[in-house]
Amino acid sequence: MSTLHTVNKSPFDRGSLESALAHALPGDAVLLIEDAVVGARSAAARIAEVLKAAMPACSLYVLGPDLSARGIPTTDVIDGMTVVDYAGFVDLVTGHDKTQAWL
């Protein structure tokens, strides 16, 4: 049983990313969408550390169209995070037993 966790709020504004990571189990995936993608930049040291700490256990993804819309090039994204499009989002949903939205 693995879970896809979706997070849509900026980690600079809300605690939903950190709460999601605190409840994600090994083998789960976490996908950043909407405003949460601002947390995927490697230059933002504190949040980048939080994400990197989760990485050995969980796979981390970020929605590319949301990055582009916010002017964040994929080259700015934390190493080890995977950029997906909406089709990739669908594959993540079907590839895990369930989806939990951290609204």
Partner: peptide, 28 residues
């Protein structure tokens, strides 16, 4: 796949994301 949309149009991106997700699911 079942989809749930909890926010209205324009203020939040939720409905747009749900729409893009739904469309991509159907296209797949």
């Amino acid at each position: 796949i079942g989809v749930v949309v909890n926010e209205g149009p324009y203020t939040h991106q939720a409905s747009d994301t749900a729409y893009q997700f739904t469309k991509a699911s159907l296209e797949k």
